[in-house]
């Protein structure tokens, strides 16, 4: 990985989207990757929630990092993450009740997404607010990208639709297993395989 690479805006972007992608390189946040990826709409909204939370918690941790005593560092990070997740939950419940209904318990579960805690601890604790904010956005976007790819294939195979619109012909028999959480492992495995292969070629070429 590129922990020693200089922290530039472009470097953070390519690192988080590709070289250290939280899902297929660091294999973090897998529980939610399994749970929400059977429908594209749910995946999209959940990912937007993760982007907002990662971005804001990274930003906040970075601003107050100088004030946090080492012993309670992680506890404060969790508190900040939980704070933003509950804000997302309150806003959805009040102004987007239909989406809140569709996501059910998954919004609250954003708190337990290890990517957010990982970025707060690994990046925001030692970098400035601007870069941390950017790191949060790109890191969670890397998560979103992989999840959308998984959800794309799962929704087609499980329901014959994309974003709820039926696209497969009528004779298409849905694959029930694709609607179940464990089936995400098939696609996750394939994505990690493809990603690693391309990366090895890049390294060999370099």
């Amino acid at each position: 990985m590129s922990d020693t690479a200089p922290k530039t805006v472009g470097g953070i972007l390519t690192d988080n989207l590709w070289h250290s992608n939280p899902i297929f390189m660091q294999v973090l946040g897998i529980c939610s990757a399994l749970a929400v990826t059977n429908l594209l709409t749910n995946t999209f909204i959940m990912s937007v929630g993760v982007i907002f939370t990662t971005m804001m918690s990274n930003f906040t941790v970075s601003i107050i990092k100088g004030l946090i005593p080492r012993k309670v560092r992680m506890m404060v990070q969790v508190l900040i993450i939980a704070f933003y997740v509950i804000i997302v939950d309150i806003v959805l419940r009040a102004y987007m009740p239909d989406i809140h209904e569709a996501l059910g318990p998954y919004v609250g579960l954003i708190i337990t997404n290890c990517i957010i805690m990982g970025r707060a601890e690994a990046f925001a604790q030692s970098n400035g607010p601007g870069l941390s904010l950017w790191d949060g956005i790109t890191s969670a976007s890397g998560y979103m990208g992989v999840l959308l790819v998984i959800a794309f294939f799962r929704e087609i195979l499980a329901f014959g639709s994309l974003f709820g619109f039926r696209i497969m012909p009528n004779w298409f028999e849905p694959w029930i297993i694709m609607a179940m959480p464990p089936s995400a492992f098939f696609f996750l495995g394939i994505i990690i395989w493809i990603g690693k292969t391309i990366m090895n070629h890049e390294e060999a070429a370099a």
């Binding site: 005593p69 012993k71 508190l79 704070f83 309150i90 806003v91 419940r93 009040a94």
Partner: peptide, 27 residues
């Protein structure tokens, strides 16, 4: 450590309480 932890919890939870209260009628 104790004062900081208390203050941080107090501030964040207070904001949540206000946000919850403001949206209660809408909910």
């Amino acid at each position: 450590t104790i004062v900081f932890t208390f203050a941080v919890c107090f501030v964040f939870v207070a904001i949540l309480a206000v946000a919850n209260d403001l949206t209660a009628e809408q909910v």
